[in-house]
Design a binder for these strands. Structure first.
Lengths: 168, 168
DNA sequence: TACGAAGTCTTCGATATCGAAATATTAGCA
DNA sequence: TGCTAATATTTCGATATCGAAGACTTCGTA
């Protein structure tokens, strides 16, 4: 390769500069860009871990959504939560059901509706994957003290509290 | 729908609790989960904006990568940057070239290599989209003071500086 | 120079995703 | 009740993506 790959830090600086030049506000772009770069890098690591578990990113999104919800969800809700078309969910659930990770239960009260829930095997897969990724995530945050982590989390949570009020 | 959709804040709390229960560390999961939820929500908004511009998320990833790089990139580099298989990039670039947003230039020194660059139309599209999304992003951060935005950016940049040293 | 290994992009067949239409059920209301 | 609209899932055809293999070029080294 002709040029050495620039550091993540350098890429971040360039990205912010580019967005500002294109008309973005600096104080906004510094935050948003940082969040995006972090997610992109994390996604690359998750992708590798998922290969080992023989689960696609889309299937994993379904498993985590169910785990986080703590209750059964419908295919449409899962499609919304995982940013995918409802029609795509059908096949995805088929594959997950084949592997015994989820199960579909018809709603007795509304026969157009189906509830999807994690099986024990699904929970087990979730737990194994989380413990694996927690190791990497821990490494990523190693330069932040406990106080700084708390402050970072607090600031992000302020932003999250605002999310529902926008657009609608 | 049977139950009201829970707030983003409530979803975040549940998510952290779930990850901790599955074996994750709380100070880590509070941060990582917050970053993920924020990105997911942003992605949903970007998706709508991109529909208006008649660009897919994958095509947009190529445009931003080129804009941020500030120089021509090869298809492999673009595939790496946008988390996609190299073979998928071929067709994506075909579509972008058809629309006149990018152009391919063979490398004179190494004939196996092709350089991809943004056309003027490509830059223009980028600029329009950034100015549009900056509005939403500004709204998202409206509850943070300038000092808080600076602190949030600083903390995230500390994390980013660590990214390259992990895994390799 | 010669030749095998490595690098880069594309092609190919299989699979996943999308948006629109089809199917079926439920809700609202005259 | 009966009719229309809304809701929820699936089916279908077109397109996008993937991993493996192919075609070509360059590199390393004897």
């Amino acid at each position: 390769m002709a040029k050495r790959t620039p550091s993540a830090q350098e890429l971040h600086r360039r990205a912010v500069a580019t967005y500002v030049k294109a008309g973005g506000e600096e104080s906004v772009q510094r935050v948003i860009t940082a969040v995006q770069s972090l997610t992109k890098k994390l996604d690359q690591w998750y992708a590798r871990q998922l290969v080992d578990l023989e689960v696609t990113a889309g299937e994993w999104a379904v498993v985590t959504s169910l785990a986080k919800a703590g209750e059964a969800l419908t295919p449409s809700q899962l499609a919304e939560l995982t940013n995918v078309a409802p029609s795509s969910m059908t096949h995805r659930l088929d594959k997950l059901a084949e592997r015994g990770l989820i199960e579909r239960t018809p709603d007795a009260e509304n026969r157009t509706r189906i509830y999807v829930s994690l099986t024990d095997a699904g929970w087990q897969l979730f737990s194994v994957a989380i413990r694996g990724s927690d190791v990497v995530e821990s490494d990523v945050l190693q330069d932040l003290s406990d106080d700084e982590r708390g402050e970072l989390a607090r600031l992000l949570e302020v932003v999250i509290a605002r999310l529902d009020d926008i657009d609608a």
